[in-house]
Amino acid sequence: MKRPLRFMLRLVLAALFVAPILLALAASFRDNSDMYRYAGSLSLWTFLPAEPGIDAYRRAFTLPLLQTQLFNTVLLGFVMATGTTVSSLLAGYALSRFRFRGRQALFLLMLFTLFIPVDVILPPLFFVVRDLGLIDSFWGLALPFIFSPIGVYLIRQAIEEVPRELDHAASLDGAGLWEVLRTAILPNIRGALIACWLMHFVFVWEWYLWPLTAMRSDDGQLAQVAIASLIDPLRSTDYALVFAAAILTILPAFVVFAILQRFLTSSQATTGGK
């Protein structure tokens, strides 16, 4: 293949994925009259705001509950990320290092739950949470997903790569079960822990169906679900407002991701051998 062709192919590929996102970003700087005058017919102003302004952001800030809802999303992100990481760490440690009957079966059972998508199982999940009396509560949103098969898998895998001799050395030094975890294992799986945390943090912005079902009160709702109700495909939608609000919503996720991603560089555990 010739060089320019390769370059073009990559450019097209990149554009395919980034252009829609840039288009949405541009839309957030338009106002409605601008949008409905120019966006429908092909010109430069189809894609870019003719009279860029931040009016949409101003209106997004005045949406009555958006700030509360945004806080809900971010808080849920922290709770989910921390909860799944801690529970996965403990379970991963047990599944990797302890010997007990049915360990492999338990691990497989955990992985198997990956095949139960929320979309399919929404009504029974709603009944379970209703029986626990958690509908319309923050914990009703969070608890069902604190156990994460992906998290357990990720962390167990990372712990498997920490040489057992390190645990043994620590326990000969007098460390108990918790201290082996703290001194021999934790420092060696930091990368995996941060990856797990970050993944589950960002994953909250993916949520739609479950909060839509399990949270009926507006001030407990997540921002992205509330914004979705602004879209009415069959009538004219205020897209500028939608995107301004959406961008405000994902901004915290981006900030956290930007801060933590540099810790993601794979950390290799070694004992000094080989």
């Binding site: 040489p163 001799e165 390190l166 043994h168 050395a169 000969l172 001194t183 021999a184 420092p187 060696n188 555990a269 070694t270 004992t271 000094g272 051998g273 080989k274």
Partner: peptide
């Protein structure tokens, strides 16, 4: 008792 392991089992972060 102290043990010296084949892979030395040194804490890599210390």
């Amino acid at each position: 008792v102290a043990m010296v392991f084949q892979s030395y089992a040194l804490y890599p972060h210390l």
